[in-house]
Nucleic acid binder design. Structure first.
Length: 278
DNA sequence: AGGCGATCCTGAGGGC
DNA sequence: TGCCCTCAGGATCGCC
């Protein structure tokens, strides 16, 4: 499922295909996956038909497509969402395509864009003005690529919940999902069930630094290899081999050899090393 | 009020 | 080989 690195990699790979192009048509095939900030606007118009694409933005796991008029499309991939550019699969060969666009570049190149999401945990938001995207994002925490120890300490330092739960809370920081939460805690040497109020300022700084490094590495690697993820060019990520704990419960810790533990924390499978994480 | 659990949905993959 | 069951996951809502 896409987390921050996958979405950032997607954003970067999408740029050459969509920036500077005009949306010649847009269609919403499943209205219930889309939230309109301006009800009454035709779906094709809300989905940027007639607009030029001038920029992309990202906060955490959400991707936004911007236009000079301010009309904005925000995309959340959930866990099985894909944004496909010129898929080779013939039309009708893809199931669960909930929205589609046709774009035309000044050069004449035509691009077909599809939003596909089998499990429908993802979705779209449309905004008639860019400031409404900012309002939509106002309740989400700072992006995990730039997270600081000060922020984590200030907002989580007195709380009782397990730090694994905190890392998954998009209001605290944006972009970390189950995989990178476990990986970051392993690298930082912190046990996932530790309460926030037991961490020292140094612990928070180490955790923030680990998150920034880990996520930046994963962005460069093109995101994790998970069954549903493809970038805009249809490629899978290749950071899967780098996972130290995620998906490795019962296997030896890569650092000390101790058998990795697993438990449910916040309804999420959590894997950690009892020896390396305290 | 904070923390936890249920819920949505589909397909991959394991077991028989 | 084929079928069935379990599990995976983000975010939201309701309950304690």
């Amino acid at each position: 499922m896409p987390e921050l690195p996958e979405v950032e990699h997607l954003r970067r790979s999408l740029g050459p295909h969509i920036l500077g192009a005009r949306v010649t048509s847009a269609a919403l095939h499943r209205p219930d996956i889309c939230t309109h900030a301006a009800p009454g606007t035709p779906a094709s118009r809300a989905l940027l038909a007639g607009e030029c694409i001038s920029a992309t933005r990202r906060l955490g796991k959400q991707l936004a497509i911007m236009t000079p008029s301010g009309r904005t499309l925000c995309i959340h991939l959930g866990m099985s969402g894909q944004l496909l550019v010129n898929p080779r699969t013939p039309a009708g060969g893809l199931t669960h395509v909930h929205a589609s666009w046709e774009l035309a570049h000044p050069s004449g190149t035509v691009v077909r864009l599809l939003f596909r999401d089998p499990r429908r945990f993802g979705g779209l938001w449309t905004f008639p003005r860019a400031d409404l995207l900012d309002a939509h994002w106002a309740h989400i925490g700072p992006d995990a690529l730039a997270i600081t120890g000060e922020h984590l300490h200030r907002h989580e330092g007195a709380r009782a919940r397990p730090i694994k739960s905190a890392l998954l809370d998009q209001a605290l920081l944006a972009g970390v999902g189950n995989i990178y939460a476990d990986e970051a805690l392993f690298r930082a040497g912190l046990a996932p069930q530790r309460s926030g109020r037991t961490l020292t300022p140094d612990n928070w700084h180490a955790l923030a630094a680990t998150l920034r490094t880990l996520l930046a590495e994963a962005v460069e690697a093109g995101g994790t290899t998970l069954r549903d993820y493809r970038d805009a060019d249809g490629r899978t990520g290749n950071a899967g081999a780098a996972h130290a704990v995620y998906g490795r419960a019962g296997h030896p810790c890569l650092r000390c050899g101790t058998t990795l533990e697993t438990a449910m924390i916040s309804q999420r499978t959590t894997v950690w090393c009892q020896q390396c994480q305290r």
